[in-house]
Simulated assay, not measured.
Amino acid sequence: MSALTHRAAAALAGRRVWLCDLDGTLVDSAPAHEAAFRTALAEISPGSLGSFDYGAHAGTATRQVVRELGVDPALAERVAGRKQRLYRAYVRDGAVAVLPGARRLLGLLAERGHAAYLVTSASRDSATGVLRACALAGYFRGVLTADDVPYSKPDPRLYRQACLTWAVDPADAVVLEDSAHGVASAVGAGLLTLQVHGDAPADGAVPVRDLGEIVSLLEAEAGPVG
């Protein structure tokens, strides 16, 4: 077991509440998000397309991305709405896939009696569509989206609100994130954070290779179920 794996195992010990991100963490949605953004910008605000880099905005709410791109305020709502409609159509067409290990991890958390909640900067309709299309909805006791709060990642108030909403003791919780924005939100809220699928380690997070490694850590902690 590597030093990082030891660190992750020690961090997880005794924690029974999981606050999980969705996009890039449990599902591979980046290509669909990027395609939706590019099409919406090309149709409505083509001048903003040249500066668009989806990777720099991963984990951020759609309307915040549109603001950060400097889209004309008179066009911003049209761009955001068009992007969301396109993305939801891609989801319905099967363009978003569950990442390897996600179902096993969520199933294992349920088997162990751990509580899993979803904390996402996606809109409620988009998040619900993904959960439905990927058959993941039944794993979560609650879902917090960009429609439920006036701020999104990397603002730490999103995860603070999640803890308040579900009466979660931060000392009993672990956050599962992939993007730097998501990690910043969780770490800023004082929460233990595991980072998966990150291109580069984000400050304050415990890096893990993939979801399968987390499954192995949990199985080693308490032994196999059954």
Rank of each mutant, 00 (worst) to 15 (best):
A32R: 03
L144T: 11
P150T: 03
A89F: 02
A61H: 05
E77L: 05
G113T: 03
P156K: 05
A220N: 13
G81P: 05
P100D: 07
Q195A: 00
Y139P: 01
Y139I: 00
D148R: 03
L218H: 09
T145R: 04
A3G: 07
V208E: 01
A80Q: 08
T39I: 08
C20T: 14
V149D: 11
H33R: 08
H197E: 00
L99D: 03
R78Q: 12
A205K: 00
A173F: 00
Q84G: 09
R88C: 13
L118R: 05
E43G: 04
R103L: 11
G129S: 05
D28W: 02
E111R: 14
V225P: 06
D148T: 06
Y151W: 14
R85A: 15
E77I: 09
V174L: 01
R103I: 14
E34N: 10
D28G: 07
D53K: 09
P154H: 05
E43W: 04
A205W: 00
F52H: 04
A13T: 13
R15T: 04
D148N: 10
T193Y: 06
L191P: 12
K153S: 10
G190T: 06
A122M: 10
Y139M: 04
P100H: 04
R67D: 14
C20K: 04
P156Y: 09
